[in-house]
Write a protein that binds this DNA or RNA. Structure first.
Lengths: 345, 345
DNA sequence: TCTGGAATCTGGAGCGCTCCACTGTCGCGC
DNA sequence: GCGCGACAGTGGAGCGCTCCAGATTCCAGA
């Protein structure tokens, strides 16, 4: 950068150029190395000196340069998280990843998929920033390209089973969650229970097969019906439209996730269908929308904090432990009964 | 004897060593510098050599180390974005920031506020990663601490006017949007139009005063009523509850944002109130929820792409231009009439 | 008195990259 | 033949930090 001296810096922080460790050292009258020790809270510095260094650093508004740290350490202690900004559940998980990573001394970098920014690009950015491990909240199960990064860097896939050896996965006990949901509906007296599929979204394949299994367990194999869908409101709406166009409605629907459930609920209600009077709906995720008092969605709660914790721990373990076989961590699922399920008419 | 230092052990950390520029250079039989030139697509290399370098880089799976790049360049060409994972509108803006930044050759780093991770911490992380400029989608107008970073690093505040000199701001023409909304309601015949306040959220103060001004313009000063609130569903619900508990409902409500509007809508509907039959509702943002066919919210559309573009351009300009006075960019607002507004009974 | 070891502190090398100043090598006009 | 600019390519310095191998001090114990 050109050495354009900034004429008016805030007086408080003073330095036109970012303060370096050498500046702090000079001010405190010690060596760079010692400053480094003190700032990283390592033994090897006397109490008085320590104090002096800290004071000097504070006065200069010193901020360690993580780029230089990474370079020098040969490690970045940074975890990369690939997410979708539109999935509330991702937000939930990310919120829990921050403290989990911080606790283990890791930093977190977020990268989101967006139109024109696919998984590949987004993970590339993460890797370019020297993330030592990746947590993939988004990952196309069909193109294993992203997962295969596991060969390069420890990778944890969230929300579904990994299909590549050497890649960890953390996901919800979909079978349990779905079974609870189906059990609940059957207990209420439902038989015609439709499932809206989540397409390529995480967990969808498992939920689909768990739905089938649960239906069979209740000897309702004949009633099995899976509608194509996705994990968003539009898919729920589309499914709702489809159902409304048919002769008879099912009495209950297990949606791909909460967003899908909400879309479905709106579609049905605006089609004059009473929920849960005529049709019961069960969601999946238990994000911040579902517990809103008027949505009040019966849903399968995924343990975002648990998922985040395990994902981080697995990634770090793999990082510090070298090669490990791919592990699968299953987090608990819990049906939360609210107001969108009721006995069928 | 120092020169026979053995290379870093590979086995210990398990990770296969990441290929460096020197590796690529050796493989292609050229100097590091040339590799650097080729990879950055700079003139100074012959076509044949260029090809060879590219091939070598590809074969080694070479990935430039952005930490080293930053360090060497003295610049990171990275923009930091502070966001809230729970605001769909932020997601919208971020999605547009990516391409805008990429076009100017800048990288984007995301940092989210979360429980236990306040603005200060989140921006600290961004700064530690050497972001050269910050785009703040989140910023507490009361504590100017975050904004004051503008003294250190170019800062653009999104969603409200900056209160610190030397800090740019990009926000929607709240006055115009709100005026359109109020005009629309008045045109429909409404007089009792209540506004739910967005609390400390971005844009709230402007919307509040714009609401007051618009009401006065229509000689409805007596009908002005601002309910305390926030920019989320819960606030909408709370406001709805409050209104339901009163003797008479207003005929229209201008909500703090879409999320708030949705909360309100649900609260009113579950209280047996017809929307828009008895009460019309107008939101603000036009995020992905509002256009869902059953929510179908009349709302004020904020130009996320425009906001993102201006924020990025302003930040970069300030970066490359040295000192500039604080500028304010106002993006268009546009009322989108959908199905939650109708003439009063 | 000397020894040795803990506690404290220092200098230099080097992480992977970019930039600057430089060396060659052409080809072309005079 | 010479000069000269354009192009191709090289080597070294150094970004801010951490680590390693010492250097210095001080004091307990023989």
């Amino acid at each position: 950068m050109d050495e354009t001296l900034e004429p008016q810096q805030e007086a408080r922080q003073g330095s036109p150029q970012r303060a370096t460790m050498a500046d702090v050292a000079k001010r405190a009258g010690v060596s760079r190395t010692l400053v480094s020790l003190v700032l990283r809270d390592r033994p090897g510095a006397g109490a008085a000196t320590r104090e002096r260094v800290l004071k000097a650093a504070d006065e200069l508004g010193y901020r360690p340069d993580s780029a230089a740290q990474m370079l020098a350490r040969g490690r970045s202690r940074t975890l990369g998280v690939l997410m979708n900004l539109e999935q509330p559940f991702h937000a939930e998980v990310v919120k829990a990843i921050y403290p989990a990573a911080a606790q283990l001394g890791y930093d977190v970098l977020l990268s989101a998929v967006a139109p024109g920014r696919d998984e590949h690009l987004a993970t590339g950015a993460l890797l370019g920033h020297r993330c030592e491990a990746l947590v993939l909240l988004v990952s196309d199960p069909e193109s294993h390209a992203t997962e295969r990064l596991g060969g390069t860097v420890p990778t944890v896939v969230v929300g579904r089973q990994a299909t590549t050896p050497g890649v960890d996965s953390v996901h919800t006990a979909e079978a349990k969650g779905v079974r609870q949901a189906v059990d609940h509906l059957v207990d209420l007296g439902h038989r015609r229970i439709v499932h809206i599929d989540g397409g390529k979204g995480p967990g969808s394949a498992d939920r689909r097969s768990a739905y089938r299994a649960a239906m069979r367990r209740h000897r309702l194999a004949d009633e099995i019906r899976v509608l194509p869908g996705a994990q968003d409101e539009d898919a729920g709406i589309a499914a709702g439209m489809l159902l409304l166009s048919e002769d008879a409605l099912p009495t209950a629907v297990l949606a791909a996730n909460d967003r899908c459930a909400i879309g479905l609920m709106h579609a049905l209600r605006s089609g004059g269908v009473d929920v849960p009077g005529e049709v019961s709906i069960v969601g999946y995720d238990d994000g911040n929308l579902s517990h809103l008092s008027h949505i009040n969605l019966t849903t399968v709660r995924q343990d975002a904090a648990g998922i985040a914790g395990h994902a981080v721990r697995n990634a770090v373990e793999r990082l510090e432990n070298g090669t490990l076989p791919g592990r699968e961590t299953v987090c608990d699922a819990q049906l939360v009964v609210r107001a969108t399920t009721a006995p069928p008419r």
